[in-house]
Structure formats: structure tokens, C-alpha cells
């Protein structure tokens, strides 16, 4: 081994030892300049090659090359180590408290009544029903007389009515006037429709009673429509709305525009029929009134009651939404208190 070779070997040991001390990119750069830079011993060895005797040159050249490669690869390893360490340090410094609240996104919502109304409409659409709407300010004839409730009929007591200052004009007390409108439009075609809309009753405004509320009327008119068809249709509706195992019952009731008339109860979905406050201990919730369309109504609607029959049903969207979410005050719906609406 020549002196030169020995020097290079020493330089390698010295440089690698120095590299072990390096802990920053700045120090690494200084190390690189010192040990691999132009004036470093290794590079110097290359430029000094010409000064060596010819027979030493290849030996020293090889040795310098070997040292240079060794230092370069050590440098690369160190550089990668430092990069990793730096990254880890940066990442560690960027650690956040993931339990902080997320950035607030303002979400829009449908009003709970419109949510229920949509669900009901969708169920009936699935069952092949069309949707039909009619005015909220109505004539006495459409709201009462054509529905087999002549003036001064005791049945008028069933609806507390808002009248307007125009004779014979009132705020509809139910969606049933729509029955006459759609029948007159469609006769003698058959009908399978629902009639959603806002209705108004003269009541005291309290936690339990509203003056304005949304109803959905169901109307089927055709040839050979029977009570059994009504029962089957409404049971299907209840199964879709309240779950397929929901028990229902029909019991006789009275509406002037249907005969026979019935009230449909569904097993209380709060207590499962055991009896609770919501169902007043009966295990049943009244969900809709229904019946076979009265011959007089069919006639006013332009259908021959000898030939046609039909059934109608009516349900309250407010009431069912109230029961569903156990809302304690029906006025919440139209007060539109944001703290209430945001819950749906």
C-alpha cells in the first residue's frame, strides 16, 4: 500500500466518523463540502494523480474512487436518514386535536310536515295514485253541500268553519272539496288519486289544537269498487307507513260524504299496543277516517252512482307527525322555531 493509499484510507475512516456526528442537513452539507467537495482530500487525490509516478497512479486512482463511492453512499444513506427524521419531526409538530369540533356546515332541511307529507305521497305514488290539488279558499257548495252536507245539517257541527266576508266563500275545512273538483274533471274516467293540502278550522290555538293543518285525502272511483278494496288499500298503506307488521283495525264512524264510514286505527307505535300516554291507554292510534263515497257525492261529482262506486279516506299530516316525534305542542310546526326545525 502506498502512502497515498493509506492517507485515503485514513480520510475515509475520518470522514465516516465525522458523518456519524452529523445531525442536521446544514451539517451534512458542510460534511459534503469537506469530504466530497472540490477541495476535499478525496477530490484532491484525483487532481493530484498527475503528480504521482505512473505506476502508482492506477492504484491510487482506484483507491480514491473506492473511497469516493463509499463516502457518497454513506452520504446518501445519511441524507435519507436526516430527511426521514426531519419529516417525522414536521409531522409530529403538525399533530392536531382530532376531538375538536368539525367545521360547521349549514345543512338545509325539509320542514317535518313536508317530510311526512312527502313520505305519504310517495307511498301512494308507489301504489299507483296520482296527486291532485285544489284551492284552499272554497265555496260553501264544494266544502259542504256537494259533499252531502246541506245547509243547517247537523253534520256541519263536525267542522268549525272560518267564513269570509263574501257570502258562500269559506276557508276549506278539509281537503274533501277536492273530491268534487277531481271528479268533475275526470268523469267518467276512473280515479285513483290523493289530494294533499292545507285546511283550516275555527279552533282555539293551543298546544293540542291548530287552526291550519295539512290533510291528505284519498279518492278511488271506478266500477265495482268495494269496501274490501278500501280495506285492502288502507291496510297496504298502513303497512308501508308503519311497518309491515303494524296491526290495524277499522271501526264504524260517520262522515256525511261516505257510507259506510269507518275510522282506521293503527297499533300504537310508541308502546306497541300496551297502552301509554300517546294512545291514551288504548293501544290504538286513530290515523284516518274513510268510507265508501256517498251516492249523493258521486252524483255531484258527475258519476252515476248506479254504475260507479268508490272510496275516500282522509288523514292529518300534522297529527301523525306530532305522534311520530312525540311533539308536545302542535304550534311548533307553524311557529317554525329554528331550534325545533333543526332537529328533523
Amino acid at each position: 500500500m502506498t502512502d497515498r493509499e493509506a492517507q485515503l484510507e485514513q480520510e475515509k475512516i475520518a470522514a465516516l466518523t465525522a458523518l456519524e456526528e452529523v445531525v442536521s442537513t446544514e451539517a451534512l452539507e458542510a460534511w459534503r463540502v469537506a469530504h466530497l467537495g472540490k477541495s476535499s482530500p478525496v477530490m484532491q487525490a484525483f487532481s493530484d494523480l498527475g503528480k504521482l509516478p505512473a505506476e502508482e497512479r492506477p492504484l491510487v486512482g482506484r483507491a480514491a474512487n473506492a473511497v469516493k463511492q463509499a463516502l457518497e453512499s454513506a452520504y446518501a444513506v445519511k441524507s435519507e436518514q436526516l430527511r426521514q427524521a426531519e419529516l417525522e419531526r414536521v409531522l409530529a409538530s403538525e399533530r392536531i386535536d382530532v376531538t375538536l369540533p368539525g367545521r360547521a356546515v349549514q345543512r338545509g332541511r325539509l320542514h317535518p310536515l313536508n317530510q311526512t307529507l312527502r313520505e305519504v305521497c310517495q307511498i301512494f305514488r308507489d301504489m299507483g295514485f296520482q296527486i291532485y290539488r285544489s284551492p284552499e279558499v272554497e265555496t260553501d257548495d264544494f266544502n259542504f253541500t256537494y259533499l252531502n252536507i246541506p245547509p243547517y245539517h247537523p253534520a256541519r257541527d263536525m267542522w268549525d268553519t272560518f267564513y269570509t266576508d263574501k257570502d258562500g266563500v269559506l276557508l276549506r275545512t278539509h281537503t274533501s272539496p277536492g273530491q268534487i273538483h277531481i271528479m268533475r274533471e275526470r268523469a267518467p274516467e276512473h280515479i285513483r288519486a290523493i289530494l294533499p293540502g292545507t285546511t283550516m278550522r275555527y279552533e282555539q290555538l293551543t298546544a293540542r289544537s291548530e287552526i291550519e293543518f295539512i290533510q291528505v285525502e284519498v279518492l278511488v272511483v271506478g266500477k265495482g269498487i268495494t269496501f274490501a278494496d278500501m280495506k285492502g288499500t288502507l291496510i297496504d298503506f298502513a303497512a308501508r307507513a308503519f311497518g309491515k307488521d303494524a296491526r290495524t283495525r277499522l271501526r264504524p264512524s260517520y262522515f256525511p260524504f261516505t257510507e259506510p264510514s269507518a275510522e282506521m286505527d293503527v297499533e300504537c307505535f310508541v308502546c306497541g299496543g300496551e297502552g301509554c300516554n300517546v294512545c291514551k291507554g288504548t293501544g290504538w292510534l286513530e290515523i284516518l277516517g274513510c268510507g265508501m263515497v256517498h251516492p249523493t257525492v258521486l252524483e255531484y261529482g258527475g258519476y252515476d252512482p248506479q254504475e260507479f262506486s268508490g272510496f275516500a279516506a282522509g288523514m292529518g299530516i300534522d297529527r301523525s307527525t306530532l305522534m311520530r316525534y312525540r311533539v308536545d305542542d302542535i304550534r311548533h310546526f307553524r311557529n317554525n322555531d329554528i331550534r325545533f326545525l333543526e332537529q328533523f
Binding site: 285513483r192 271506478g222 266500477k223 265495482g224 268495494t226 274490501a228 280495506k231 285492502g232 288499500t233 297496504d236
Partner: peptide, 15 residues
């Protein structure tokens, strides 16, 4: 009313 059967509407859908 409990004894009256339940049927699905058999008439064709309106136009």
C-alpha cells in the same frame, strides 16, 4: 268490519 276481507285494487290504473 273485522270480517270484511281485504283486497287490492284490481281495476286498471287511470290514464
Amino acid at each position: 268490519y273485522e270480517r270484511i276481507p281485504s283486497k287490492r285494487l284490481a281495476v286498471e290504473l287511470p290514464a
